[in-house]
C-alpha cells in the first residue's frame, strides 16, 4: 500500500459517487492510487473494481463499500456500513474501524481485514475468501459458509457457523453459542499455519495457538428424517 505514484484525488463533497465509480470502472493503469475524501457514509463507494489499483477512503463508508472487488486494494480509514466487500472475488479490503452486518458476505476470494468489531452475519455464505477480524463478530457469523477462513481475534456471538459447509472459523475469545452442525475441533498443524499466515497478512499479532477451530460436523450433509429437525 501507499504506492509511489501521486494519488488521484476524488472529493465526494464536490464530486459525485458516480464520477468516482465510473473512473474506477474505466481502463486503469495498474498501481494507480486513488484517494477518496469526505466519503461521509455514502453507499457503494469503490464497488466493482477489476484492476490492481489502490483506493484509500479517508473516512466512514456506507453500505456495500468495495463490493465485488477484484484485484484492487481498498482501505477504509474509518467504519464501514453493511455489506462491506460483499462478493469480493480477489484483492484486499481493509477497514480500520468497525464493520456493520454482513461483512464479506459470499466473498469468493481475497482478504478482508476489519480492525475493530464486525456486526452480525460476518462472512455469511463465504465462498472462498478470507476474513480477519481484530475485534469480535456478531451473531450468525459464517452462516452456511462454504469455503475460506474467518479468523476472529475477539469473541463470537450466537449461532456461530450455523450450517457450515467447508469454510473454517478460528476464534480466539469466547463463543456465545455454536450454530447447528458446527463443532469445535482440535487445531492441527495446518490450522496453526493458516491462522499465522492470515494474522501476518492482516498485521495482527496473536499466537496462533490461542485460537479454537470451528468447522462443520458434516451431519447436515445428509438428510436424516429421524433427526426431527434437531442437530
Amino acid at each position: 500500500m501507499g504506492g509511489l505514484t501521486t494519488p488521484v484525488l476524488f472529493d465526494l463533497s464536490k464530486q459525485t459517487l458516480r464520477e468516482l465509480n465510473k473512473a474506477l470502472h474505466g481502463p486503469l493503469v495498474p498501481g494507480t492510487v486513488y484517494r477518496v475524501e469526505n466519503p461521509d457514509g455514502a453507499h457503494s463507494i469503490a464497488v466493482g473494481i477489476n484492476a490492481p489499483v489502490e483506493v484509500h477512503i479517508e473516512g466512514h463508508a456506507g453500505y456495500y463499500a468495495a463490493g465485488m472487488n477484484m484485484l484492487a486494494t481498498v482501505v477504509i480509514y474509518g467504519n464501514a456500513g453493511p455489506g462491506v466487500a460483499e462478493n469480493m472475488m480477489s484483492g484486499r479490503v481493509d477497514v480500520t474501524g468497525f464493520a456493520s452486518g454482513g461483512a464479506g458476505a459470499s466473498a469468493h476470494g481475497g482478504l478482508l481485514v476489519i480492525g475493530g468489531d464486525a456486526g452480525l452475519r460476518c462472512g455469511i455464505s463465504l465462498k472462498g475468501g478470507d476474513i480477519v477480524v481484530g475485534g469480535s463478530v456478531g451473531s450468525f457469523s459464517a452462516f452456511m459458509a462454504q469455503a475460506g477462513n474467518l479468523v476472529v481475534c475477539g469473541d463470537a456471538g450466537e449461532g456461530l457457523g450455523d450450517s457450515l459447509y467447508e469454510a473454517v472459523v478460528y476464534v480466539r475469545g469466547t463463543i456465545q453459542s455454536l450454530g447447528a452442525d458446527a463443532q469445535v475441533e482440535p487445531m492441527a498443524e495446518s490450522d496453526l499455519a493458516t491462522v499465522s499466515s492470515l494474522l501476518g497478512a492482516a498485521g495482527i499479532s496473536h499466537p496462533a495457538s490461542d485460537f479454537k477451530r470451528v468447522a462443520s460436523a458434516r451431519n447436515l450433509y445428509h438428510w436424516n428424517a429421524d433427526a426431527n429437525q434437531e442437530y
Binding site: N38, D40, G41, A42, H43, G59, H60, G62, Y63, N79
Partner: peptide
C-alpha cells in the same frame, strides 16, 4: 446511517 450524521460539528 452515518451519512446523515456526517455534517454534525466535530463529528470526526
Amino acid at each position: 446511517e452515518f451519512r446523515s450524521l456526517a455534517h454534525l460539528p466535530d463529528i470526526r
